[in-house]
């Protein structure tokens, strides 16, 4: 019912699926976002990069409606995520998926049942149809043969691929990837990159990748943001990012140990500190 309403809602800018405006968010005393604007274009791969601890994952959780911002508006296809009731939010979440860093598979269910889980919860499909869909999704990530394994028998890369199959089980409009490449060997990193790309190209799924693996992400992204210190430092196509004049961005891209982002955590001078004990 609300599904019909959302699709018929006139999207002011139909090229943009998610629109973040003036987002403020703090955890405890620490300010994570200080009024940022982000646009996620429909059908494209958007990369969100930044040093560890800048709250990239936080952004995904805010878009998914799990956490509530202190201020600002997040619209998904023209619907304000944080003004929804729980039911409305759940309707919205069926249209998006979040791939967690470690996969977050349900450990008491087999691979097959993990992928079938959203189908069983949200559809009334007969068992045969569920089986067909699950096998197709597992085939897409190349793990049809692993359907009877349990999550603890999978490697990290395989877990993420199963989680990806689960994330696309309901054919969402958008998949958000939280650090998909962290801790992967080069082969499974390559597999994941190709998967993300092919899902985007073949199914037109809007993709958001949060990562700090700069080269890998920029090689598949259509559009990228660099976020640090609660601000958007650079935005644009990968080439524009690489050519950014900002010292900060350059330090991040090149991985220099010192620069605008100081190597040292904020402290008084070493000499003062040493003198103090004497």
């Amino acid at each position: 019912m609300s599904e019909a309403r959302t699709t018929s809602a006139p999207a002011a800018d139909s090229a943009t699926l998610v629109r973040v405006r003036g987002l403020h968010f703090s955890r405890g005393a620490r300010k994570i976002y200080d009024g940022i604007d982000v646009d996620i274009p429909r059908g494209k791969i958007t990369a969100i990069m930044g040093p560890s601890g800048t709250g990239k994952t936080t952004l995904l959780r805010i878009i998914g409606g799990q956490w509530r911002p202190a201020d600002g508006a997040i619209e998904f296809d023209g619907i304000n995520v944080h003004q929804q009731s729980l039911d409305g939010l759940y309707t919205l979440r069926k249209r998006m998926s979040l791939l967690f860093q470690n996969g977050a598979l349900l450990t008491d269910l087999s691979v097959f049942e993990n992928v079938a889980f959203p189908l069983r919860e949200h559809t009334k499909l007969p068992e045969a149809a569920i089986r067909d869909i699950v096998l197709m999704k597992l085939e897409a990530v190349g793990l049809r043969g692993a359907r009877d394994l349990y999550p603890e028998e999978l490697s990290g890369g395989m877990s993420r691929r199963v989680a990806l199959a689960r994330a696309i089980a309901l054919d969402p409009e958008m998949v958000m990837y939280d650090e998909p490449f962290t801790g992967q060997d080069p082969i499974s990193m390559g597999v994941l990159m190709r998967l993300i790309q092919s899902l985007n190209r073949s199914l037109g799924i809007t993709s958001v990748i949060v990562s700090h693996d700069v080269d890998e992400v920029l090689s598949i992204a259509d559009h990228a943001y660099v976020i640090a210190g609660g601000q958007v430092l650079a935005r644009g196509a990968p080439d524009e990012i690489r050519a950014s004049p900002s010292e900060y961005v350059q330090q991040f891209l090149k991985g220099r140990p010192d620069g605008p982002v100081a190597f040292h955590y904020r402290a008084k001078s070493l000499a003062d500190d040493l003198m103090e004990r004497a």
């Binding site: 799990q66 998006m96 979040l98 860093q101 919860e121 989680a163």
Partner: peptide, 22 residues
């Protein structure tokens, strides 16, 4: 606690499944 620590509860929430009920 482990389901929370391994994001299984969050994953359910994001799959529009209420972990309170499930």
């Amino acid at each position: 606690g482990l389901m929370r620590a391994t994001d299984q509860l969050s994953a359910m929430e994001m799959m529009a499944v209420n972990p309170m009920r499930y």
